[in-house]
Simulated assay, not measured.
Amino acid sequence: MSRVVTFGELLLRLSPPSHLRLTQARSFDLYYGCAEANVAASLSKFGVSVKFITAVPDNELGESSLSMLRSFGVEPISFIQGKRLGIYYFEQGASERPGKVVYDREDSSFSTLKKGMINWEDAFKDADWFHWSGITPSLTLELAEICEEALTVASRMGLTISADLNFRPTLWKYGKKANEIMPNLVQYCDFLLGGADESENVLGITVEENATREEIYTKWMEKFPKLKNIVSTRRIKANASSNGLNAVFWDGKKLYRSQKYYVSHIIDRIGAGDAFMAGIIYGMITWPEDHQMALEFAVAATCLKHSISGDINLATVNEIKALMEGSGGGRVSR
């Protein structure tokens, strides 16, 4: 199956157990992950060959994080440099109390990467697909320039390029706004995950208040003519403990809508968007002409991720297909 390459930071996540608040915590549950790494691990679990490019420190945390990726079958291309692995703390929400993320990732090993360090031609050798997200260019101007370096090569080599806009306002601290940086990078993309609320903040595209999804995505494709497909997820009647979920897929001509799922007891919503992204990439590789099937697979994948602790979706292809076919409801599989 196709080889996918992803590029991003690998983080250590620390979460208080039992839905405690950070101010109450006396111990933490430890996980590794973050956007592009989560996509890589999930794709590998689906049977897709994946490389993940990152940088980690030369210590036990760096080695442990890479071992985690290898345990999923991901091939890490890692630069061992810098002094620390980035950290984020996640406080699980409950009911109407939202979850909260506190970042501690400044001066991480990943932030010390420089242009010219990565041989992108070698990285993309035998690859068909390159995935990145808006988190990486939000961290430093140098990383934004490295993203462009990668995208230029991937485009020249004919890879399908996807991105999750992943707008995180608290990360854009180096004097540039997302809509000053991201449009220059999105122009290389064939496939985009993003919502209407990111249109102006990330892409610099103003839309009318009552514009339909078709009208919004048509504007995106007019500004970025390389774009072939756009997907977006939606949470319905959502709080921190329960969500309704569905998604749409726009191919420039038709808007596909997925079935709806209702998750009544969320175990962990971190990584749900990454589970969707991995699902849609897998779907497009597996059923390239069946957009509805690809969309349904991705939504079922993100639904199951809400039941799994940690950043990475541990659901298998067969489990996701079973949910698509109606085998939910909490029955014991025997």
Rank of each mutant, 00 (worst) to 15 (best):
R156V: 04
G158P: 11
L159V: 07
L159I: 07
L159P: 02
T160I: 13
T160M: 13
I161C: 07
I161P: 09
S162G: 11
S162W: 08
S162I: 08
A163C: 15
A163I: 14
A163T: 15
D164L: 06
L165Y: 05
N166T: 11
T170H: 06
T170V: 11
L171I: 07
L171T: 02
L171E: 04
L171N: 05
W172E: 08
Y174Q: 09
G175N: 09
K176R: 12
K176S: 05
K176F: 08
N179A: 01
E180A: 04
M182D: 00
M182T: 01
M182Y: 00
P183G: 02
P183F: 00
P183R: 01
P183I: 00
P183T: 01
P183D: 00
N184A: 14
L185W: 00
L185Q: 00
L185N: 00
L185F: 00
V186S: 05
Q187K: 15
Q187R: 15
C189M: 09
D190M: 03
D190R: 01
F191K: 03
F191H: 06
L192H: 10
L192G: 10
L192N: 10
L193Y: 09
L193W: 06
G195P: 03
A196L: 13
D197W: 11
E198S: 12
E198L: 09
S199H: 01
E200T: 10
N201F: 06
N201V: 10
N201L: 13
N201A: 15
V202Q: 03
V202T: 09
V202S: 04
G204K: 03
I205F: 12
I205D: 11
T206M: 07
V207D: 09
V207C: 15
E208C: 04
E209M: 10
E209I: 11
A211M: 10
T212G: 08
R213Y: 15
R213E: 15
E214F: 03
E215R: 07
E215N: 05
I216H: 12
I216P: 09
